[in-house]
Design a protein around this nucleic acid. Structure first.
Lengths: 222, 222
DNA sequence: AAATTGAATATTGTCGACAATTGACACTTG
DNA sequence: CAAGTGTCAATTGTCGACAATATTCAATTT
């Protein structure tokens, strides 16, 4: 390893994309809202070109939609979309966990255990945002330990959409203590190398989240 | 229904992206090859702007990679990449099939049956390209019948990469008759609504494909 | 000869401009 | 007054240009 670390190449497109993502997942930009290139480029102090490229990037991630000659709009999530996203998440995460079962190291398991413990802490004294982020981190770690880079990339894309959906709902979908506890069967099955139990645990765990999210979203009248 | 159908809005970016995809999956553009914007824009007779946007689109699909200030390159697939892609495909397709099991109609099952029969026909008298496409269509139909739009989109993205990998290998990875036959257990399990058998059949079927593809690819010295 | 340096060339990142298209709104017309 | 038409401002699609950066390659040094 060299003496110096690579300097941050501040890619303008990347920066713009990041900011728009944040604005959407924070709820500052509302679903269906029009994103005119000129307005955005003025806010960022750039020309329209990098904004357009950033928007295309976001379009491929499903965060915004475009129709030719009409421009870009923040994607409107329906309850069907949310159901699909969580449903897909179930399938991917079960598969990742299945892969992780065969290759997880003690150190990695320890990291998962620690992350689960963090959930208990945050259930006592954390903000909703922190709880959601910690929960997400647990599941992302599980996917990462599956060792499939392509899967992790898809999972991250899904996560952005999930976050947008949850922000839209605006409240936690269950008691945080209960959420923390439901991670135990997952860890247990992982430790015992029990594939069937692991699958069951994840299917149940995420299935509950899916049902709650869809329900809350539908109740809001979406 | 009106008298006229909507005129094709020939989106330039879309057209360019399509052409580049074809060139890559056909093997005209080789892995690692540099894609300079000026050269492409000259070939297409456009300016660089739409070319850049098309390349970003392809980047998000994983077909090309870019590094800042250095430009775009056709993605170089490693055998690890191919393993990851097929591994992920196993997980997604099992999940899609699981969903399809619960909701598939007789008509849809008939379409799958017909597609499987087509594989036998093509094993006798079809080109390799036709066989691969027919096989792919069968599996894509299975995913579609799962009813999850988001999953189908991810699957399609994966398919583009799979096709690029197969083109790179340049030959079929197994006896076409054998390939056709291995679809029977899938159809059987689907008809009998046997989730476990369906999962097993798919895992085996795609697992064989994964192993063969990775093996051929590694043998080529990649 | 191998490695290093430096100038020349090629390429990207970004910009401002212009034509084509869309959507809104006032205006005509029956 | 409803329906349709024409006009105008706003916005997108595309382009060519320029500065910043990367790559190439010949000259130089070790």
């Amino acid at each position: 390893m060299g003496m110096f670390s690579a300097l941050e190449t501040t890619d303008l497109v990347q920066q713009i994309a990041r900011q728009i993502i944040n604005a959407i997942t924070d709820g500052q930009l509302k679903p269906g809202e029009r994103l005119t290139e000129l307005r955005l480029s003025k806010e960022f102090g750039t020309s329209r070109a990098p904004v357009r490229e950033a928007l295309r990037l976001l379009e491929s991630q499903g965060l915004v939609v475009s129709s030719p000659r009409r421009g870009f709009f923040v994607r409107t999530l329906t309850s069907d979309d949310l159901r699909d996203i969580y449903e897909l998440r179930i399938g991917m995460e079960i598969h990742a966990a299945d892969l992780a079962l065969q290759r997880i190291t003690d150190r990695e398991f320890g990291l998962l255990r620690a992350q689960a413990d963090k959930l208990y802490e945050l259930a006592e004294e954390g903000s909703i945002g922190e709880q959601i982020f910690a929960d997400f981190t647990f599941h992302r770690m599980l996917c990462a330990f599956g060792g499939n880079a392509r899967l992790l990339k898809v999972y991250d894309d899904l996560a952005v959409e999930m976050r947008a959906g949850i922000t839209l709902i605006g409240k936690l979908y269950d008691d945080p203590h209960k959420i923390a506890e439901t991670h135990e069967p997952i860890l247990e099955a992982l430790q015992n190398k029990d594939r069937v139990k692991l699958r069951e645990a994840l299917r149940y765990h995420i299935g509950v989240a899916r049902d709650e999210v869809v329900k809350l979203f539908t109740d809001m009248g979406a």
